[in-house]
Amino acid sequence: MVDYKIYGDQELVQLMRSGDERVLIEIYDRYWEKMLAVAFNRLGNQEEAEECVQDVLYKLWKLRENFSLVKDELANYLARAIRNQSFNILDRRYRERLKAEGFPPAEEINLHTPEHELIMRELEQQIDSVIRSLPAQCKLVFTLSRHEGFSTKEIAEKLQLSENTVKSHLKKANKDIRNNTKLLTTLVFIPIFFQ
């Protein structure tokens, strides 16, 4: 019997493209905990986090014939997929809450005006710029936490820092992002309330 643990990400993807279901089991075993940590970090709910991971793995399998990794590692791809699926779940949760509270559905509010799209792009660029301007250690901690899904404890162990130092770096990064995006964030949400 083949031991899939010896294969790298690119090899797993090639085997998956050929329809080998055992590859999905290896991806599950290899990345489940990290994916779950990223999902739980964003959603704060174990059941939704597990559902999120299952959805991502299901979609990966459905796309297997056309799926490829260029430079990325599979872990990075999966972290991004979890982040996007988490946004979908949060959006669904938000819509359900608004509906329960009697607010109009979001479809009735036009958020896709050219002005709104431009502001959103500028906001994204501004956030990226703030992240790039963070001190090296702070940027690394922030990236490991938000993009890779590592817990505070895992980051502390990986970088040989105390957990309090990791928390301080995350606090600084969040504060810098918040302080440098206040105006654009306000511009994004003000039109929603005046339509």
Score class of each variant (00 low, 15 high):
residue 102 G to K: 01
residue 103 F to G: 03
residue 104 P to N: 08
residue 105 P to Y: 03
residue 105 P to D: 11
residue 107 E to T: 10
residue 107 E to Q: 11
residue 107 E to K: 07
residue 107 E to Y: 11
residue 111 L to Q: 11
residue 112 H to W: 15
residue 113 T to K: 00
residue 113 T to C: 03
residue 113 T to P: 01
residue 114 P to I: 09
residue 114 P to W: 05
residue 115 E to W: 06
residue 115 E to F: 06
residue 116 H to E: 15
residue 117 E to Y: 06
residue 118 L to E: 15
residue 118 L to A: 14
residue 120 M to W: 02
residue 120 M to I: 04
residue 123 L to P: 00
residue 126 Q to G: 03
residue 126 Q to K: 11
residue 127 I to Y: 00
residue 128 D to F: 00
residue 128 D to Q: 11
residue 129 S to E: 05
residue 130 V to M: 04
residue 132 R to G: 00
residue 133 S to Q: 15
residue 134 L to Q: 07
residue 135 P to C: 04
residue 135 P to L: 02
residue 136 A to M: 08
residue 136 A to C: 04
residue 137 Q to D: 07
residue 137 Q to T: 13
residue 138 C to F: 00
residue 138 C to R: 08
residue 139 K to Y: 03
residue 139 K to C: 05
residue 140 L to E: 15
residue 141 V to K: 03
residue 142 F to R: 04
residue 145 S to M: 09
residue 145 S to G: 04
residue 145 S to Y: 15
residue 146 R to V: 11
residue 146 R to E: 11
residue 146 R to L: 09
residue 146 R to W: 13
residue 147 H to E: 15
residue 147 H to L: 12
residue 148 E to K: 10
residue 148 E to S: 01
residue 148 E to M: 08
residue 150 F to C: 13
residue 152 T to I: 13
residue 153 K to G: 07
residue 153 K to E: 15
residue 157 E to D: 14
residue 158 K to I: 08
residue 158 K to Y: 15
residue 159 L to S: 10
residue 159 L to I: 08
residue 160 Q to Y: 10
residue 160 Q to P: 00
residue 161 L to I: 06
residue 161 L to V: 05
residue 162 S to Q: 09
residue 162 S to Y: 06
residue 163 E to W: 02
residue 164 N to K: 14
residue 166 V to I: 06
residue 167 K to N: 10
